[in-house]
């Protein structure tokens, strides 16, 4: 998490046009999310059915979102990006404060979708069984998450995880890993629109993607050594600063 939201402001500060920055970012999102997802899927924490049900909504959202971006003016994208960054801050904040209740009663639609599963929790050393709920609400909300992902070339992981946690009642580990699986396909749907719009530049994307993947790989190695709380706190401050900065640039103040 946190690839695109930092990458796009950085690329625009280096002088790249925001639409091209979005297109570069969405390609690197495919790489990082697919790489992470491959490990989580094989660890059997990801819920493939939940992922594949929700993908139907996010890919359509991403195509709509990317189409809007192609037609939008740059200052609108800056402001929207800033708002989404501040929104991610709120999402992370809510998630930190909330405790997820274990859902026992599954609604009929979620049961029809077979949204349940179990995984082995290493820390607790036991198998955790869970049931997904409110899929009728989760699906349409994921359309919105896909829309934002396609529009701004980010994974929108914070928003997706929040929907999985609070609306669908999935355990936090399942939320995070399943959202990773969804992000890859969603980013591909957005990429195809940017490809059609002539914004994909493989020569420009190549060094950036390599850098982001290396960073993500080293980051996960390095982050396990410092406490989770420190990482969260730093990340929350970064989101606020970048969010305000993008809005001000969109308004033409700086």
């Amino acid at each position: 998490m946190g690839g695109g939201v930092v990458l796009i402001p950085a690329l625009t500060l280096l002088g790249l046009d925001i639409k091209h920055a979005i297109a570069v970012s969405i390609i690197s999102v495919i790489a990082t999310s697919s790489g992470a997802a491959s490990a989580y899927v094989r660890d059997r924490i990801t819920n493939l059915k939940v992922g594949m049900f929700l993908e139907m909504f996010t890919i359509v959202g991403a195509i709509v979102g990317a189409t809007i971006t192609l037609a939008s003016q740059n200052h609108f994208l800056f402001i929207l990006f800033g708002i989404v960054l501040l929104g991610s801050w709120v999402a992370l904040f809510i998630r930190q404060r909330s405790t997820v209740r274990q859902e026992v009663h599954q609604d009929r639609f979620s049961r029809w979708l077979q949204l349940e599963g179990s995984y082995y929790d290493q820390a607790a050393q036991k198998t955790i069984h869970y049931k997904g709920v409110r899929a009728y609400l989760g699906g349409p909300l994921m359309f919105g998450a896909g829309l934002i992902a396609g529009l701004l070339g980010i994974g929108a992981g914070a928003l997706k995880v929040l929907i999985h946690d609070l609306v669908m009642g999935l355990p936090p580990k399942v939320s995070t890993t399943t959202s990773n699986l969804i992000i890859g396909v969603t980013a591909l749907a957005g990429t195809s629109v940017y490809l059609a719009g002539g914004l994909i530049n493989p020569g420009l994307a190549a060094p950036v993607v390599l850098g982001v993947v290396t960073g993500a790989f080293l980051g996960t190695r390095f982050l396990v050594r410092i406490s989770n709380q420190v990482v969260r706190t730093i990340f929350l401050y970064v989101l606020i600063v970048l969010g305000v900065e993008m809005i001000l640039r969109g308004l033409g103040v700086i």
Binding site: A31, S34, G35, A37, A39, V41, T46, L48
Partner: peptide, 14 residues
Amino acid sequence: DMESLVGTILMVGV
């Protein structure tokens, strides 16, 4: 098996 299939495709691809 589905999980190893999906996981392997993603890993080899990336």
